[in-house]
């Protein structure tokens, strides 16, 4: 019996704590987090310096609503992005797709880095010749 009383008090105590606990704004916080992380990679077309997540433009709101509904209906992130790309073009993606036209963008820096490294090593070798150098203290 005593155990039950303790449990009862514990439950009501919890209830008291939670009585004023603020509720998440979104009905489904998990889906909302997914929406947020996806829309952060998407560009708002109206105020073009903002992501879809940050923009307050009416179109951004409509699109967030649309994405929320699609996610709710079980669409994957990729399907949602494809839906938007079909309407607004690659422009909506802050992560440019890997295509022939963006090959240079994605690989250029690494190729540049490698060329630089090879060039440096070759130059250093050529300069040093066969000489043996003495280490120099500070």
């Amino acid at each position: 019996m005593k155990r039950w009383i303790v449990l009862f008090y514990m439950l009501t105590a919890c209830a008291l704590v939670f009585a004023g606990e603020a509720k998440p704004l979104a009905e489904d916080p998990v889906l909302e987090a997914r929406l947020k992380s996806l829309s952060q990679e998407l560009r708002c077309l109206v105020c073009q310096n903002q992501t879809l997540a940050d923009s307050n433009a009416p179109l951004a709101e409509d699109l967030r609503k649309e994405i929320r509904e699609q996610m709710h209906a079980g669409k994957s992130d990729k399907e949602v992005v494809d839906y938007l790309v079909a309407r607004y073009g690659d422009f909506v993606m802050y992560r440019p797709p890997m295509k022939r036209s963006t090959m240079l963008l994605w690989l250029g820096p690494f190729v540049g880095f490698l060329i630089g490294a090879v060039f440096l090593i070759r130059t250093l070798k050529k300069r040093a010749g066969n000489e043996d150098f003495e280490a120099e203290e500070e």
């Binding site: 077309l45 109206v46 009416p58 179109l59 409509d62 699109l63 649309e66 309407r87 607004y88 073009g89």
Partner: peptide, 13 residues
Amino acid sequence: MDGRIGIDYGVYG
């Protein structure tokens, strides 16, 4: 009125 057709047509401005 709710901008749905607009989204389908890719209207942004």
